[in-house]
Amino acid sequence: MSDKHTFVLVHGGMCCGRWWRETADMLRAKGHEVYTPTLTGLGERAHLTGRKVNLTTHALDVANLVKWEELKDTVLVGHSYGGMVISAAAELIPEGTIRSIVYLDAMYLDDGECVFDAAPEFKDAVGDADEIPTPSPSMFGYDGAIAAYMERTGSPQPVETFAEKLKLTGARDRVPVKTFVLALNSGIPAFQDYYDRLKPDPSWRTETMDTRHNMMLEAPEETAAVLLRAAI
């Protein structure tokens, strides 16, 4: 097996692929291939937003990247809401293409569940609007430079991406290497629940990071190291 890896890093909700920049640069400096797509309707692709954009759209963003870049032996990483995307994308990517799947303080929901089921506060915030507003960085415990960056690069979330329910047949479970990484200071109880659920399972690896939720902004070097361990 080559010691060089191909990473596809999927960002979370209300942000963009730019959030991976420092971590991606560190991985590339070590000779790895890294893709950081921005999902439809967010960031520089905000002009494509609307109720037509749903979880399936985002899964296709990732699956089509893998297809058209002809990626093989891929390390597929999802942060936060990105866990929903990689779960759905795994169903669309040919089996054997993903060698490692990583949930980085990410949603790990089951078939028939949606983000609004796990985080009803976002449903309360959106009402009848087409987009979910960006939350305050203080919600995640951030202030100062990181908070300012989050505010500059945050992006409203197309509402149907949180409303569409996952359709799973077990593709993610068949990926050879599976890792869940918990941010110890994220303050989001659901992620602790996912970690506790997966830790006893011998088919999963689990790690913790002494950071808040957005570890790629807070600790990019440590994030890169965690992803490299998950790739092996």
Rank of each mutant, 00 (worst) to 15 (best):
F7W: 03
L9W: 04
L9G: 06
H11Q: 13
C16H: 13
W19G: 01
R21L: 11
E22M: 06
T23K: 00
A24N: 11
D25R: 07
V34G: 01
Y35G: 12
T36A: 10
T38M: 06
G43R: 00
E44A: 08
L48H: 10
L48S: 11
R51V: 06
V53L: 04
T56L: 10
A59P: 01
N64R: 07
L65Y: 08
L65S: 06
V66Y: 00
H79D: 04
H79Y: 15
Y81G: 00
G82S: 08
V85A: 12
I86K: 13
A89Q: 07
P94R: 05
G96N: 12
I98A: 03
S100A: 11
V102Y: 11
V102P: 07
M107G: 13
D111E: 08
G112H: 15
F116G: 08
D117Q: 02
A118R: 14
F122R: 12
F122V: 04
D124Y: 03
D130W: 11
E131L: 12
P133N: 08
S136A: 14
F140M: 07
G144M: 01
I146L: 09
I146S: 03
A147S: 01
A148R: 05
A148Y: 00
Y149L: 10
M150H: 03
V159H: 06
F162E: 03
K167S: 11
T169D: 13
G170Q: 08
G170L: 12
P176Q: 00
T179C: 09
S186H: 04
Y194H: 10
R197N: 12
L198I: 01
L198Y: 07
K199V: 06
D201R: 14
S203C: 11
W204D: 02
T208P: 15
M209V: 15
T211V: 04
R212G: 02
M215L: 14
E221F: 04
E222M: 08
T223W: 02
A225G: 07
V226W: 00
V226G: 06
L227N: 02
R229H: 07
R229F: 01
I232Q: 06
